[in-house]
Design a protein around this nucleic acid. Structure first.
Ligand SMILES: [Mn+2]
Ligand SMILES: [Mn+2]
Ligand SMILES: [Mn+2]
Ligand SMILES: [Mn+2]
Lengths: 222, 222
DNA sequence: AATATTTTTTAGCCTAACCTAAAAATTTAT
DNA sequence: ATAAATTTTTAGGTTAGGCTAAAAAATATT
């Protein structure tokens, strides 16, 4: 039984929606919004994925991935993130340029290729956006990082990832001069608009809107 | 106007058929045989490619690529061969393992990616099977190599490529111990079955069936 | 030149993956 | 507990890319 590119994209979407709302069923409309595909079409596909035993679908009640479906989705995510590492580390793309190309490459079907690509890249644990790369068994380092705007303390943080992957957001961070691994220290939070005054690498002071801060993931520096 | 994966495969097939019979129109049946798609389906597609101004198609008279179609086909070939070099040179695949994966990778759509991949690989001129890689402008080193079995002389040759790309043939050459770049000297041609007795790199004597010799391309050693 | 064979096209069908409009089920508000 | 609003499904349509069977055109044989 073969899984089409389109089916892979539906599974990936359901997987991604599931990880933000743990253990709850995903609705037709959520998938429709995420993929920009009309709800009626999504219903069609859910029936087909259910037929193929990749999901548990109850009409009107939503959908969950089963083991097979989750495995398939995680594999696509693994491929996506490995290819992003390849594009940045080996071909010198910038982190805001790789997502669209990886959207294509993630559907290339060859286990041997993933295996060798992973080895060639030195078995990376994270992609250029700080997202964890599932291992060959589908196991994934859960990232316990928290968005910068959830913190109020003036302690030091390390910038470990982003939750938004749009070109404009990533380019904005590059323009500010912020890269993954940088040290961040909250110096002030403005009462008026909840914007952040932050010191980067103990050198440069920058201001982040709350929206920017909400999409920056940090670990507390030890 | 976007060109689908399927359309790319038809254009590539027509291109490949054209290079063996220069300047003659390609028939519906030739394409049907090459792609293992029924002739009626091919006719359908030829009408569509003609609509899209990628080919010159005259019903009952066959088809030729026009400039646009040729350009598209050559670009797919360029991508295919660059990816094969990547797989062999960087990921250590064997030359008989890469074709199927390259059949997928050749459809990844990103000019910037081809550009950077080419640079990363050191702008290679030939793929692992000795096939020339078209440059960014679509220009191609014409290979003037001749099949070994066309030669009768006992002079020395260099093995520069293969005309057959099947796994079984390539594995056979590997088993014999023959690699691209090796020196070949015809020691004898058997009257009975036209098989070749050949010395490889002045060391090892091997016997090639005429069919094998027909698929080995050689240059005369200077 | 007429007939037989081969090649190609046309006609009619199918499936995957999309769509819109309408109906049905569920959820929310009164 | 109804009624209104929202969500989801069903019904019917489209396009790309495949198929088979039959018709038409081109080519080969007598
Ligand atoms: Mn991405
Ligand atoms: Mn990423
Ligand atoms: Mn190949
Ligand atoms: Mn090749």
């Amino acid at each position: 039984m073969t899984i089409s590119l389109t089916e892979e994209n539906y599974l990936k979407a359901i997987y991604s929606l599931s990880s933000s709302s743990v253990d709850e069923a995903i609705s037709t409309n959520q998938i429709s919004d995420k993929l920009n595909i009309k709800a009626a079409t999504v219903t069609d596909m859910l029936k087909r994925l259910s037929e193929k035993k990749l999901i548990n679908y109850i009409p009107y009640r939503g959908v969950k991935l089963n083991e097979k479906g989750k495995q398939t989705a995680v594999k696509v995510v693994r491929k996506h993130r490995l290819w992003e590492v390849f594009l940045v580390e080996k071909l010198n793309f910038k982190w805001d340029e790789v997502h669209e190309i990886a959207e294509q490459l993630e559907h290339i079907n060859s286990d041997e290729l993933i295996l060798r690509l992973d080895k060639f890249l030195g078995k990376p644990k994270f992609d250029p956006h700080g997202d964890p790369i599932p291992d060959a068994k589908g196991l994934l380092n859960v990232v316990k990082a928290v968005a910068l705007n959830k913190h109020k303390t003036k302690s030091e943080f390390i910038f470990v990832g982003v939750t938004e992957h749009s070109k404009s957001f990533l380019q904005h961070l590059t323009a500010i001069g912020l890269k993954i691994g940088d040290t961040l220290k909250i110096e002030d939070i403005n009462d008026f608009d909840n914007s952040f005054k932050v010191k980067i690498n103990k050198h440069n002071t920058r201001f982040f809107s709350n929206k920017v801060a909400a999409n920056i993931l940090v670990d507390i520096k030890k």
